[in-house]
Write a protein that binds this DNA or RNA. Structure first.
Length: 854
RNA sequence: GCGGACGUGGCGGAACUGGUAGACGCGCAGCGUUGAGGUCGCUGUCCUCGCAAGAGGGUGGAAGUUCGAGUCUUCUCGUCCGCACCA
């Protein structure tokens, strides 16, 4: 018996698959297609465990579907533009293009060593001009179709570095490198009109059958359609008015103030003559651009001194505040506050000592006793203190109020969305150049098609602050394509979500100079199974859904929904370690001395073990996949990734779990390779009759085939593995050398090998070969189960007394109640539990349970 | 702050539409095998009490619906993810 040498075997099979082009595909109308796609990686340098998990999940599906007879497209590529390449350029003086290319080469090798079944001929990198030339064309078509437009919007501005900062580069309101206070700056930027598609994107969520509900809910909430009213408040002693949007016009009688955003035109105007107000506005602006920051900041307001007339109550006026929690992007950038029924408004009213008038009370409330203190009442109820609305429900009141406001001309019904248009301009070098030339005479002019692609210049330096494209001496200087006068290129590049919004379509015709080819796209799309992290649940997935519709509108493709099935995977976690000084330690710097005792391998000092957290470089709780691959092999890594946790949950990476997977692989090898078993190169005939024990094993084999198949279909890989292990344990206890057993033993081993092939492809190929087969397991059809072997004649059910388990009885399948009762009531445990008590009722559920109620 | 999830032995997790909670694996314990080289095999293992038969308790917590709740309902606590320029 030989030891399993995974190093040789895994490399050999990877070579075999590659040389035979086993996983390269073509369109073939005679076969059903299946497109498996995992979210492509950003080439950050080396693959991490999150990649390994993501791509293992996809590979199981791809290999399984291939075995099930599908024509499987399973491609891989690189989301190659992005900020880290620029950071590397600044830190290490490497060109982003060079850095990225090197990373891709490393990571490609790493992925190959995992044995993933990619069609590498379809590899794409988004920083390749052959890729991004098409999105430059798309963008120009978007302009023509009215999907792309320019407007002003705010960015985080680092005044010291003269750079726009990403949200993650702003730490506590300061630039991450300069530590300078970040300002907000308004720039003219390009946007895509995703809001035009809001209703469609919302409606169509219903059609996404194989998407997780939580992702669908998150997208619905993100789009945030709300029906309400636009209401006018006239400013006292002025012709101007403030328009607010509200979904609770029914609470208008309780309005005690209006609040407008700091960037609201009225606020800006007032600020020009009022230094204190200008100071407040700039304080609001320093809050940053992220919604989380704005919403968690303490609610503050500034009384403008203006008052507005209440649109319903004749001689009532209410004050106008500027408030830091009112967003200019949402609704009209102004609200009316009804403190009694909105917690945020209530907090605000208490802080600034504003009136609180309850206008809705719970139906059973004692009105003399109903008042609002610190908790707003947001529930259902009946209107009070509301003039003509008194006594009505919230829904009735909304309708009556809508009619009233429409009649007197101070309001109209409106639907608004939380969803904002997608800003795609980035003031960065390492991205796809926006193909526009700005001419003082002609305005923004699209670059003529024959001049595409617009390439990035390579003679750049990152020493000067700001965008290298902007700083470049000559790159931006061109003549206007329309009037011929000197003009300037756009020096902004696309948001990198632009590239990832259509790459799945590019994989269908990855090398075509004509971009997306309808025949190919129509054959392969939609993606049947898309797999990636939950962190993309909203943005990437929503942008891709929108982009697909935009491409459809411009005639590029025929479909509207790009991903018919989606699985989102959880994160990889690992224990954290700190030394006494509170510094983080890498797992391989730490040794477990048994139990809870951990020491630092270098200095022998005690190490504090922390709880398991998401693997991150900052906490050093990372394990490099390459070490696992070289120590245990790809199959072990793959098996462990799938064994314990279901894909959508977080996975704890543990050394002992890896050991467990490793032991199983070696056990499998021994079971097939043990020389006495006559398994090698000798097909054993199935005996004409099987004794009862062997028949039961045969049934178990077929049950396992059936269950593993359905488990894989439903992404229950951990269960599939558990079932195969069960079968392995049963088979392992069979004395294979006994001649009446050898057939079932061989049959069982073959089944296990075939069922595990998508999960651990290398060792199973090798064992398959050892069993005498000459064709690849990767090209062998999935085993089929015999339905007649799935059911047993008898069932064991539980017998309960008052819902408490008191014993089991074995019954013929589907037997009737009288037999079950007669057996069940005579069980010792049941007799004891019933004792002298009177039997009230007996509940019998066929094949499930017998419950005696006393 | 808003939105979305998750919570079951010492640990990762099973439990299909409410029907014997703890499959499978890890760890641990005992026994055996091996003893140059990541051992291997068998048995046991939810907790408490008991030598045992058995009894009682048990799915973050509290309440509810039901003959029966890990699963359904309400409240509550804890942890995590997203929030539009990280990808």
């Amino acid at each position: 018996m030989s030891r399993y040498n995974f190093k040789i075997t895994e490399g050999q099979w990877q070579k075999n698959w590659e040389e035979t082009r086993c996983f390269n595909v073509k369109e073939d109308d005679t076969l059903p297609k299946y497109y498996v796609l995992e979210m492509f990686p950003y080439p950050s340098g080396r693959i991490h465990m999150g990649h390994v998990r993501n791509y293992t999940l996809g590979d199981v599906v791809a290999r399984y579907k291939k075995a099930k007879g599908f024509n499987v497209l399973h491609p891989m590529g690189w989301d190659a533009f992005g900020l880290p390449a620029e950071n590397a350029a600044i830190a290490n003086k490497v060109l982003p293009a060079v850095w990225t290319k090197e990373n891709i080469n490393t990571m490609r090798q790493q992925l190959k060593s995992m044995g993933f079944s990619y069609d590498w001929d379809r590899e794409i990198a988004t920083c390749d001009p052959d890729y991004f030339v098409h999105e430059q064309r798309m963008f120009i078509d978007f302009i023509k179709a009215g999907i792309a437009y320019r407007k002003k919007s705010w960015v985080n501005w680092d005044p010291q570095e003269n750079t726009v900062l990403a949200n993650e580069q702003v730490i506590d309101g300061r630039g991450w490198r300069s530590n300078a206070l970040v300002e907000k700056k308004e720039l003219t930027q390009w946007f895509l009109k995703i809001s035009d598609f809001g209703d469609e994107l919302l409606e169509s969520i219903k059609s996404l059958g194989r998407w997780p509900d939580r992702v669908k809910t998150m997208q619905e909430n993100w789009i945030g359609r709300s029906e309400g009213m636009r209401i006018e408040f006239n400013i006292v002693n002025s012709k101007d008015k403030i328009e607010v949007f509200s979904t609770r016009a029914d609470t208008l009688f309780g309005a005690s103030f209006c609040a407008i955003a700091a960037n609201h035109p009225i606020a800006i105007e007032l600020g020009q003559n009022n230094d204190r107000l200008a100071g407040f506005i700039s304080k609001c602006n320093s809050l940053g651009t992220s919604e989380a920051q704005i919403e968690t900041a303490e609610k503050e307001g500034f009384d403008t001194g203006l008052r507005v007339n209440h649109p319903i109550i004749d001689d009532k006026t209410i004050p106008v505040f500027i408030a830091n929690f009112v967003l200019i992007e949402y609704g009209t950038g102004a609200i009316f506050g009804c403190p009694a029924h909105d917690q945020r408004d209530l907090d605000f009213a208490r802080k600034y000592d504003l009136e609180v008038v309850p206008v809705v009370a719970p139906e059973d409330a004692d009105l003399n006793d109903f008042n609002i203190d610190k908790i707003a009442y947001t529930g259902n109820g009946v209107h009070i203190n509301s003039g003509f609305l008194n006594g009505t429900s919230i829904d009735e009141a909304k309708e009556i109020m809508a009619q009233t406001l429409e009649k007197n001309g101070s309001g109209k019904r409106e639907v608004t969305y939380r969803l904002r248009d997608w800003g795609i301009s980035r003031q960065r070098y390492w991205g796809c150049p926006i193909p526009i030339i700005n001419c003082t005479e002609c305005g923004p002019v699209p670059v003529p098609d024959e001049q595409l692609p617009i390439l990035l210049p390579e003679d750049i330096n990152f020493d000067d602050p700001g965008n290298p494209l902007e700083n470049h001496a000559t790159w931006k200087k061109v003549d206007c394509p329309e009037c011929g006068q000197p003009a300037l290129r756009e020096t902004d590049t696309f948001d990198t979500f632009f590239e990832s919004s259509w790459y799945f379509a590019r994989f269908c015709s990855p090398t075509s100079p004509d971009g997306l080819i309808k025949n190919n796209v129509n054959y392969w799309l939609p993606v049947d199974q898309y797999i990636g992290g939950v962190e993309h649940a909203v943005l990437h997935l929503l942008y891709s859904r929108f982009f697909t519709r935009a491409l459809n509108k411009c005639g590029y493709i025929d479909l509207k929904e790009p991903f018919s099935g989606l699985v989102t995977q959880g994160m990889i976690c690992h224990e954290t370690y700190k030394n006494a000084d509170g510094q983080w330690l890498f797992p391989d710097e730490v040794v477990n001395k048994g139990g809870d005792k951990f020491i630092n391998q270098l200095d022998g000092q005690d190490v504090i073990r922390g709880r398991s957290e998401k693997m991150s470089k900052s906490k050093k709780n990372v394990v490099d996949p390459e070490i696992i691959i070289s120590d245990y092999g790809a199959d072990t890594a793959r098996l462990f990734m799938l064994s314990d946790s279901p894909p959508d949950r977080d996975l704890d990476w543990t050394e002992s779990g890896v050991e467990g997977a490793w032991k199983y692989i070696n056990k499998l090898w021994r079971m097939v390779d043990a020389p006495k078993n006559n398994l090698l190169h000798e097909m054993i005939e199935e005996p004409k009759t099987l004794d009862i024990e062997m028949l039961e094993i045969k049934q178990k084999i077929h049950q396992t085939i059936q269950l593993v198949g359905s488990d894989i279909e439903r992404f229950h890989f951990n269960k599939a593995i558990a079932r195969v292990r069960e079968l392995t344990n049963i088979l392992d206890s069979v004395d294979a050398e006994q001649s009446n057993n050898s057939w079932i033993y061989q049959e069982g081993c073959k089944t296990i090998i075939r069922l595990l092939n998508p999960i651990i492809p290398h060792i199973t190929e090798e064992l398959w070969k050892k069993l005498g087969y000459e064709t690849f397991l990767a090209e062998t059809p999935w085993p089929e189960h015999d339905p007649s072997l799935l059911t047993k004649d008898n069932v064991v059910i539980g017998v309960q007394v008052n819902g408490k388990n008191r014993g089991q009885i074995e019954l013929p399948k589907d037997c009737d109640q009288s037999l079950a009762e007669s057996l069940g009531l005579n069980l010792e445990g049941v007799i004891r539990a019933v004792a002298n008590k009177k039997i009230k009722k007996i509940i019998y559920v066929t094949n499930r349970i017998l419950n005696v109620v006393v």
